[in-house]
């Protein structure tokens, strides 16, 4: 029996582990390796440069800028859709005419790709005939032709709004599922004990949604790391690097400037940052596990 189990285990795990190891773990290791070289991408000859790439990072103004933008992007791209999706789910979690229609409307953008979302929002932000400025003109009566995506102080946040619009539906669906999973008798205890609607939300509903939040945050982190696409489409990191993130910076260094060694160093740093996030996430997960099993 035990031998049987061992054989099956090996047989079943072989393929997934092989693929994952070869195309994820191994490249990750090589990334570390390249980060100590000055490889340019084509030339088979390259030199070891020690920690030179990392030394360059410390003095790279653009790297610092990209790191700050990445932090802003990650936090906003996780917090905004999560909060919005939670709000929508709380509103929708009741008997309402048209509830199915509302859910579909809020979910719809998830099916669209970053390329398409980017294009839609480029039209909305278009200075002359874009929807946003048109509405602003009508509402205020004044002239508005602000180029949202071409101004350093609005570019990143304009993309974040577009991103939130797209991602909200996913967290809404997960929170709705979480809300239906809250046992009715726990809410009845709130009634009997005299909890106000606010107390019920803060002290019972939100804590009980923790498992959903774990999933939402996980998916948001994954998706926001992929946020490369939408930034590439909408701003390309510009103007004047005002929406440049680490992923974009690394892409530019590696594939536009052909400094693969330096690009690898950036991805190593990006990876280390991700490890910190993962660490925090798993610590939270253990706490959740104790309570919810």
């Amino acid at each position: 029996m035990n031998r049987q189990n061992r054989i099956w285990r090996t047989a079943l795990l072989a393929a997934p582990l092989a693929v994952f190891g070869l195309f994820v773990v191994w490249p990750l290791m090589s990334s570390f390796y390249y980060s100590f070289t000055n490889w340019n991408g084509f030339n088979p000859n390259y030199d070891f440069v020690g920690f030179a790439n990392f030394g360059k990072i410390v003095t790279d103004r653009l790297f610092l800028n990209a790191t700050i933008n990445t932090a802003i992007w990650m936090v906003a791209a996780i917090v905004l859709p999560t909060a919005l999706g939670l709000g929508l789910a709380l509103l929708l979690d009741r008997k309402l005419p048209g509830a199915r229609f509302f859910k579909s409307v809020f979910y719809l953008p998830i099916c669209l790709s970053a390329v398409i979302v980017g294009q839609i929002w480029i039209w909305i932000y278009q200075p002359d005939w874009g929807l946003l400025n048109t509405v602003l003109r009508h509402v205020t009566g004044a002239e508005h032709n602000w180029a949202w995506l071409a101004r350093p102080n609005t570019a990143l946040w304009s993309v974040i709004v577009a991103w939130s619009w797209q991602q909200t539906g996913l967290s809404m669906v997960i929170y709705l599922a979480g809300l239906t999973g809250i046992p009715g008798d726990l809410l009845e205890v709130c009634e009997i004990e005299g909890a106000s609607p606010w107390q019920r939300l803060r002290r019972v509903v939100l804590p009980l949604l923790t498992p959903s939040t774990v999933v939402v945050v996980a998916l948001s982190v994954i998706n926001s790391l992929k946020g490369f696409d939408i930034l590439y489409i909408m701003t390309g990191g510009g103007p004047f690097n005002s929406s440049d993130t680490l992923a974009m910076h690394m892409y530019n260094e590696s594939f536009a400037k052909f400094r693969m060694g330096y690009g690898s160093a950036i991805s190593v740093v990006l990876f280390l940052i991700a490890m910190v996030v993962i660490g925090l996430y798993f610590r939270q997960l253990r706490k959740v596990d104790r309570i919810y099993g």
Binding site: P183, G194, L208
Partner: peptide, 19 residues
């Protein structure tokens, strides 16, 4: 309202808050 009645209820499922 239930809270105003001075009534306590014990449920079959216990209805304890897991968190």
């Amino acid at each position: 309202r239930p809270a105003g009645r001075g009534i306590a209820m014990v449920f079959q499922s216990y209805a304890l808050f897991p968190h």
